[in-house]
Amino acid sequence: MKEEIIIAGFGGQGVLSMGKILAYAGLMDNLEVTWMPAYGPEQRGGTANVTVILSDKPISSPILSSYDTAVILNQQSLDKFESKVKPGGTLIYDPYGIHRAPTRTDIKVLAIPAMDATLELGNAKTYNMILLGALLSARNLLSTDAVVRGLKKTLPERHHHLIPLNVDAIAKGRSLVE
């Protein structure tokens, strides 16, 4: 099993956090993981992206030319990464704010209205977890349980009461795919 993922959007949308939670969940399932951010000033207001690799074998490069799956949160990132999804790969994107939709036909394209879904849930901070749920479902990657164990491991205890809200958001994301 090996999944090479790019998550890209605006700084502040929870791109790096989503990658981190995914990586921790991979760790909980005893997978090899790498989390490589495009770090720097572009994280503040500009675009942000992170490459996450999950694999049952040792991982060579943490930096990639192409990806099995792209999770795209804004137009700039769609323009940049649509062509870098491997043929047969998956592109998940939120149509909110997208004015040039993906055009490729050799990949699986999933439009996940995550922004609308966060409004339904009533908490804007669940945005990235809805997309994480969609990613886990679309690629059949990790169990929600692994994500919860990862969250318990990484969140300070004073934030553990937020875990059920995140579980709901992941379930919402999953339901948008299924």
Partner: peptide, 10 residues
């Protein structure tokens, strides 16, 4: 290099 400084892995 900055890659190995900034990336997370096991």
């Amino acid at each position: 290099d900055g890659v190995v400084g900034q990336m997370m892995e096991k």
